[in-house]
Design a protein around this nucleic acid. Structure first.
Lengths: 188, 188
DNA sequence: GTCTATATACCGATAGAC
DNA sequence: GTCTATCGGTATATAGAC
């Protein structure tokens, strides 16, 4: 198999395993096994575990940018685009109940490990934060756009942690409805 | 040293290390070193790492019960007691910015590890949930008390994750103020 | 109750044959 | 580009002297 395709498979497998079982708990053998490679061959593609994490974060950043661009084309109004973000907790409900938020849980873990890649992972949060801020600015709240963006991010993280802890689907739906009503008070 | 005192020291050290560096990342050697014991002697007090986690969770449950009882004596009204909970994110701001919420981060980690003690850790959340539910019932919202309790828990978890990710003190204060105003709409 | 020494397993990482 | 074999380190856990 060409090196590029193998590398992409490794990143995809590592992405999934880091999300499902955490970064530290995932071993090279786990990733190699998921791709169908031997541990030894692994180092031809990535020279260290940090390098894989770096590649996974880059892939998530690229995926997120694509998703945000798609939301821009699908939702005509800034409020509609913000609701697209809010509704992720419904769209990805099953995964969130099992594994939490991929961004929040990775950042939390890397902070505890005092891992050098923590800053890189923070860029994922910043990407959403900047995008939400822009939506609130377009909604006519340029002055408090960042504060409102942070509030929406905190909503998603709170719901994700509680959904993961209690597996309560009705709770998620109620919180999304609550958020929708809150957002209406900022529409003009 | 008497076995009981040594055991308590081990639990206190493990509690702190699990919070600061995570359960999996904390080794027996780390805990033994913090207490000033050899690794070998460790097994006289705890026969497995799971047993230490179990003891740590029990200690946290006992500490939490004591804290909730103290809040009952310090705050005269149910709204005041709920605000005591909300203001934890300010009271423990420094630790939360560095390590997140001790309950939320432990539950998140154990879920990813598919650890047998996940249910035990969930009791910490349930303890707060039940207590908050009781406060909302006393406030005159018995019908939606559990939903309101879950909303307050989600608030604290969302703020903790974001505070840990961005280390933004002003953000925490704003979210607490927002919560105080929200709570006022439920006072009668 | 505390210690040293050790068993056993797995981790990340490397070397070298093919 | 993939493999097997292996190194050095660390993890949990145990045995036994004191």
């Amino acid at each position: 198999m060409p090196a590029v395709a193998t590398r992409e498979q490794i990143v995809a497998a590592a992405d999934r395993l880091f999300y499902h079982h955490g970064y530290e708990h995932t071993s090279f053998a786990d990733i190699a096994g998921a791709v169908g490679l031997s541990r030894g061959n692994f180092y031809y593609h990535f020279k260290s575990k940090d390098a894989i994490l770096d590649a996974v974060i880059d892939a998530r950043l690229a995926d997120t940018r694509r998703m945000l661009e798609q939301w821009e084309t699908e939702a005509a109004t800034p409020a509609g685009r913000i609701m697209r973000y809010v509704e992720i907790v419904l769209t990805n409900r099953a995964d969130i109940q099992d594994y939490g938020c991929p961004v929040g849980t990775l950042t939390t873990e890397l902070a505890k490990l005092e891992h050098a890649m923590l800053g890189q992972a923070g860029r994922l949060f910043t990407l959403f934060r900047t995008w939400l801020r822009e939506q609130f600015a377009q909604l006519g709240h340029a002055e408090h756009a960042d504060e409102l963006a942070m509030h929406v991010l905190a909503f998603s993280q709170g719901v994700a942690v509680m959904a993961n802890a209690f597996h309560d689907e009705a709770f998620i739906q109620r919180e999304v409805d609550r958020m929708r009503e809150w957002l209406h008070t900022y529409e003009r």
